[in-house]
Simulated assay, not measured.
Amino acid sequence: MSQPVSLHHLVQQFPHPGRLDAIYLRPARREAVIAVQQAQALVDRGLSGDRAAEKTPWRAGGNKRQVTLIQAEHLPVVAAFTQLARIDPAWLRRNLLVSGLNLLATKTMFKDEPLIVRIGAQVVLEITGPCEPCSRMEEILGAGGYNAMRGHGGMTARVLAGGPLQVGDAITCLPTPSQSGAQA
């Protein structure tokens, strides 16, 4: 008879890796984002060339919003809510467009067990929470754009291990240290 699987184990199980579909850098506040094929993730900072990475961390580990991620599968939902034909992911000003991995499921259910994702061979991010929409969504998406984005704004993350990112890289969830030796 097999042992029951714990909720701690279940929240770390994903059916397959996701994919990095696009990378965007935000050079300055309110300036257009720049789409790039590759970028360098900097530990405790963010992505080289992005305004978030230019700030000197004021505490160990840096802030919780070093990199922002958004779910490609949510773009048609936001388009439907706003009655737009399509949503250009660059309009939403997130750094990484991800497909095939449920980003909402990467939000930790347990404070002592953050979810960790690996992008490509080297980059490791700790998912730190939801990336709530800002009032600019009203300007960009029209009246109601803010509410259309609520629940679909993506996630924020900290860079734990830096290195190169490239469009097409696989994205996998890693077990938290407390679960890596646990039995299923």
Rank of each mutant, 00 (worst) to 15 (best):
M1R: 15
H8Q: 13
L10E: 09
P17I: 03
I23E: 08
Y24D: 08
L25R: 05
R26D: 12
R26G: 11
R29C: 03
R30W: 09
V33K: 05
V33N: 06
I34S: 02
I34E: 06
I34H: 04
A35Y: 03
A39T: 07
A39R: 05
A39W: 01
A41H: 10
L42Y: 10
D44E: 13
L47Y: 11
L47A: 09
D50M: 05
E54N: 15
K55R: 15
G62M: 12
K64R: 15
V67E: 11
I70Y: 05
A72D: 13
E73Q: 04
L75Q: 02
A79W: 01
I87W: 00
D88S: 14
R93D: 04
L96K: 00
L96I: 04
V98G: 09
S99G: 10
K111I: 08
I116T: 02
Q122I: 01
L125C: 06
T128E: 09
C134K: 13
C134R: 14
M137H: 09
I140Q: 07
I140Y: 03
L141N: 03
A143C: 05
Y146G: 01
R150N: 02
G151S: 06
G151P: 08
G153V: 03
G153P: 06
M155C: 14
G163R: 07
L165E: 02
V167N: 02
D169I: 01
L174G: 04
P177Y: 10
G181P: 10
A182H: 10
